[in-house]
């Protein structure tokens, strides 16, 4: 029987865990730098060791994103990356790399314009496995509507938690997320940073304690994103979290690497993926971060 998106996401994290590493989850903006290069880059990332993908749907006013992803979205829109074209790219990718789950990340307005029910059905049919909507907190009625639709189609709804999240909001985000919870490393927007915030390990620990408290046996993983731009930072995050999400650094490379962005992106991604392997004493190092 065909596995659901939630199950495929869980399996990808479980496999990485069994191999003693954090799952590596690169982000790419669909349709960037061009409609043709975009799937080629994503396939090259798969070959370079991606365990899951976060694939962005472009939006004109992405208020959670820094300059790199803003510019990538703008370029994708200029390339004609409508929601429909993006889903066609996902379908093409799902056929080419069927073993890797895709989480779509898109702002709420284009999804509302497309129609939430139609979007979830079409995304599932195209082969998407999960959905991240950065401007839709879990307590809005539209989030409940989206979650119900995703359940019908086996898609994971992934909510974000931030270092500013209160205990009550961590409870809510953990309860409503499926597959994994997206932990925003730092109060801020997407984009490269030179170091991780001091309170990251404690924040991850708060989320983990809540996940354990709610359902000790439930396979709900914790992935950290925002600001992770180097193999060294990837290695640090891998010590404390189940997944490492790298966005702006890879998107920037795709933008700047001329004729063969896939090759340049893939070789950097291989370093990031390698760094996500844990050192032998594993999580013991997490204490060093806090």
């Amino acid at each position: 029987m065909k596995r659901t998106g939630v199950e495929r996401i869980q399996a990808a994290f479980a496999k990485a865990q069994a191999e003693g590493r954090a799952a590596f989850m690169p982000y790419q903006m669909l349709g960037h730098p061009t409609l043709e290069a975009s799937p080629a880059i994503i396939q090259a990332l798969a070959a370079a060791g991606a365990d899951l993908f976060e694939l962005g749907l472009p939006f004109s006013d992405p208020l959670a994103d820094g300059p790199v992803i803003q510019a990538a979205g703008q370029r994708a829109l200029e390339n004609g990356a409508t929601v429909e074209r993006c889903l066609a790219l996902v379908q093409e990718l799902a056929a080419a790399i069927p073993h890797i789950p895709f989480c779509l990340m898109g702002y709420i307005n284009p999804l509302l314009a497309y129609g939430l029910a139609r979007f979830v059905a079409d995304a599932a049919a195209a082969g998407a496995d999960g959905l991240i909507v950065p401007d839709l907190p879990p307590d809005e009625p539209e989030a409940e509507e989206l979650s119900a639709l995703c359940r019908q189609h086996g898609l994971a709804t992934v909510f974000l938690l931030a270092p500013t999240s209160t205990a009550e909001r961590i409870r809510l985000g953990v309860a409503r997320s499926q597959g994994f919870v997206y932990l925003v490393s730092v109060a801020g927007i997407t984009g490269a940073r030179e170091r991780l915030p001091d309170d990251l390990a404690a924040f991850v620990q708060r989320a983990r304690a809540e996940a354990q408290r709610q359902a000790p046996g439930r396979p709900l993983y914790l992935a950290v994103g925002f600001g992770i731009s180097t193999p060294a930072l990837s290695a640090q995050v891998a010590q404390i979290a189940d997944g490492v999400i790298v966005g702006s650094a890879l998107v920037k490379l795709a933008e700047q690497s001329g004729d063969d962005p896939a090759q340049a992106v893939a070789s950097f991604a291989a370093e990031l993926a390698q760094a996500a392997r844990r050192s032998p004493d594993g999580r013991g190092q997490a204490a060093g971060l806090s």
């Binding site: 959670a64 709420i108 950065p134 401007d135 307590d139 931030a162 500013t164 985000g173 801020g188």
Partner: peptide
């Protein structure tokens, strides 16, 4: 409603 990144909700 409140359609903002989680960081701002608190």
């Amino acid at each position: 409603g409140r359609f903002v990144p989680e960081t701002l909700m608190p």
